[in-house]
Deep mutational scan, measured.
Amino acid sequence: MTEYKLVVVGAGGVGKSALTIQLIQNHFVDEYDPTIEDSYRKQVVIDGETCLLDILDTAGQEEYSAMRDQYMRTGEGFLCVFAINNTKSFEDIHHYREQIKRVKDSEDVPMVLVGNKCDLPSRTVDTKQAQDLARSYGIPFIETSAKTRQGVDDAFYTLVREIRKHKEKMSKDGKKKKKKSKTKCVIM
C-alpha cells in the first residue's frame, strides 16, 4: 500500500485542523484551538488504489514558523489553505509557496490551493482571484467548507493525484537520464 505524506499549511484560523478532522473523523470542530502540530493517518481508496494518507496539520501562528522547514522537508505534497473571508490569509499563500519551493529546492512541488469556509456569506476573496492565482502557479484550486464537508475529500484526493503525477514524471525523467548515460565512448 502506497503511503502519501501530505502537509496542510496556511495562516492561523483558516480551518486547516477543521478540514483535516472532517476528512479523518467526519465531524466539524467549530471551536478554535490553535494547533502546534498534529499528525493523522487514514486509509482510503483513490482511483481504485488503496493508500495510506499521513497528514500533518501544522501551526499557522507566526511564533511556530521555525518548525516549518522541518515538516516541509518531509512532506510530499501540500494543501495551501486560505479562508475566503480573510484576504490576508490569501496573500500569505505566496509566502508559504515560496518557502516550500526553497526548502524542497524545487520549482515543481505537488500543491493544491484550497479556499476554505465557502459556506460563509462574508467572502472577501473572489473565486476568480483564487483561480487566477492557482493557474499562475500551475496547481489545482478547490473551494471547501469544513463545516458542510463540501470539497473536503476532493481537496485531499486531488493532492494525492498531483503527487502521483509528480512521481510518474520524475521516474520518466530518471529513465531518460539513465538511457543517456548508457551511451559509451570508444577510443581507438
Rank of each mutant, 00 (worst) to 15 (best):
R41F: 05
S17V: 00
Q61M: 10
D57W: 00
L23M: 14
A59Q: 07
D47K: 10
H27N: 14
N26A: 14
D47Y: 05
V7T: 14
T58Q: 04
K42P: 09
E3S: 07
E63L: 03
Y32E: 05
Q25A: 15
V8H: 02
D38P: 00
D30Y: 08
K5A: 04
E49Y: 08
I21W: 11
D57T: 01
D33V: 05
L6Q: 02
G12P: 10
S17Y: 01
E62T: 10
Y32P: 05
K42F: 08
E37A: 03
D54T: 05
Q61D: 14
V9W: 06
C51P: 13
I46W: 08
Y4Q: 13
E37P: 01
K42E: 09
V7K: 06
T58Y: 04
A59K: 04
H27G: 15
D38L: 00
T2D: 15
T35Q: 01
K5V: 02
E31K: 05
D30T: 12
K16Q: 02
Y64Q: 14
T50V: 11
C51V: 14
A18F: 01
D33T: 06
R41V: 09
V45I: 11
A11R: 06
K16M: 03
I24Q: 14
L52Q: 14
G60F: 02
T2P: 12
E31M: 09
V7A: 07
Q61K: 13
F28D: 02
Y64K: 14
E62I: 08
T58H: 03
E62C: 09
T20M: 05
T35G: 00
I24D: 05
N26C: 08
Q25T: 13
D33S: 06
S17R: 01
P34V: 05
G15K: 00
N26P: 10
G15M: 00
D47F: 04
A18V: 06
G15I: 00
V45E: 13
K16V: 01
V14T: 13
E3D: 10
Y64P: 14
T50I: 10
L53N: 08
E63Q: 11
G13S: 11
S39M: 06
F28C: 05
A11K: 06
K5H: 10
Y40F: 10
P34E: 06
V9I: 13
E37H: 05
Q43V: 09
A11H: 07
E62A: 09
K16D: 00
C51H: 13
C51S: 10
T35R: 01
E49W: 05
Y64F: 11
I24V: 09
D57N: 00
F28M: 09
K5E: 07
T35C: 00
I55G: 03
A11Y: 06
L6S: 02
G48P: 08
D54Q: 04
Q43I: 06
K42D: 09
G10D: 01
G12C: 09
G10M: 00
Q43L: 07
V8Q: 03
E37S: 03
Y40I: 02
G48M: 06
Q25E: 04
G60Q: 03
D33Q: 06
E37Y: 06
K16N: 05
S39D: 05
Y4S: 12
V9C: 08
Q61V: 12
D38H: 01
I55R: 01
K42S: 12
A18T: 08
E3P: 12
N26H: 10
T50Q: 11
T58F: 04
Q61N: 13
L52H: 14
G48C: 04
L53V: 13
K16T: 06
E62M: 09
N26S: 14
G13A: 12
G15V: 00
E31G: 07
E3A: 10
G10W: 00
G10F: 00
V45T: 14
G15H: 00
D30W: 08
P34A: 10
Y64V: 13
L56Y: 09
D54F: 02
I55W: 04
K16E: 03
F28N: 02
Y4E: 09
L6T: 05
A18W: 03
P34T: 06
E62D: 13
Q61G: 14
V9Y: 09
N26T: 09
E49M: 07
Y32H: 10
I21F: 08
I21E: 07
C51A: 09
S17H: 00
E37W: 03
Y40A: 01
E63P: 12
E37D: 15
G15R: 00
A11S: 09
T50H: 13
T58A: 06
Q22L: 03
I21T: 10
E63Y: 05
N26L: 05
K5Y: 01
D38K: 01
F28Q: 03
K5F: 01
H27E: 15
Q61F: 07
V45N: 13
Q25M: 11
K16L: 01
V45H: 09
D47A: 08
V29G: 08
L53H: 05
Y32L: 11
Q61W: 06
L23P: 02
I21Y: 09
Q22D: 15
V29T: 10
D54K: 04
V9A: 07
E63N: 11
V8K: 02
L23R: 15
T2Q: 13
T2E: 14
T20G: 08
L56W: 14
V9R: 03
D57K: 00
G10E: 01
F28I: 05
N26R: 12
E63V: 04
I36R: 03
E3L: 08
L19N: 15
V9E: 02
T35A: 01
D57M: 02
